[in-house]
């Protein structure tokens, strides 16, 4: 891995920002260079949400991803339409097929369809769909290990939410099996 530039996108409430933060934190735990930048605006629950994560072996210059994403992870249809085109040739596109019926148009990407919401519901909570798709993404790229993401959860979730770590861990595992 030299530099992974990932766009994560969906609607507010899907845990897009947390998914990006966990990936960033996990990269930091593995002593990689990392940055996380959110899109921010006058937005609300149900509005669009996306963040850019960079994980690299070398120092990060610009934290902004500009049509040079190595991967897009899209959780809803508007995100697919917007971010499919920002991935470089040969990059990865991970699509939440639970909410997106449309197929990717580009033929020069590695496209993976993960029914993140169905899988999340099967293991007990629809809300962990973000961890299912994150599990799939890190399985394809090996950019960070599942263990580091779990470590990151312990730090990011705070003491009151430690009981949720197991479920999220399970979601990562199920996601990894999908690719």
């Amino acid at each position: 891995m030299a530099t992974e530039k990932i766009i994560m996108a969906g609607f507010g409430g899907q845990g897009i920002m947390s998914m990006g933060q966990l990936l960033t934190y996990a990269g930091m735990i593995e002593d990689k260079q990392v940055s996380w930048s959110p899109s921010y605006g006058p937005e609300m629950r149900g509005g669009t949400a996306n963040c850019s994560v960079i994980v690299s072996d070398s120092l990060i210059g610009s934290p902004i991803i500009n049509n040079d994403a190595t991967a897009s992870v899209v959780m809803n249809l508007p995100s697919l339409l917007k971010f499919e085109k920002q991935v470089i040739k040969g990059g990865n596109l991970v699509v939440n097929s639970s909410l997106i019926e449309k197929k990717a148009e580009r033929k020069d990407l590695n496209v993976y369809y993960v029914a993140a919401n169905e899988i999340a519901t099967e293991i007990g909570n629809n809300k962990v769909a973000n961890m299912v798709i994150l599990g799939a993404y890190i399985e394809l790229t090996k950019i960070v290990s599942q263990e580091s993401i779990v470590e990151a959860m312990k730090k990011v979730f705070g003491p009151s939410k430690q009981h949720l770590v197991e479920l999220n861990k399970e979601a990562l595992k199920c996601g990894a099996k999908e690719v």
Binding site: Q21, T24, M28, V34, S35, W36, S37, P38, Y40, P63, I64
Partner: peptide, 10 residues
């Protein structure tokens, strides 16, 4: 600038 305020880094 706004980016410095909003982005996350170690």
């Amino acid at each position: 600038d706004g980016m410095i305020g909003q982005m996350m880094e170690p």
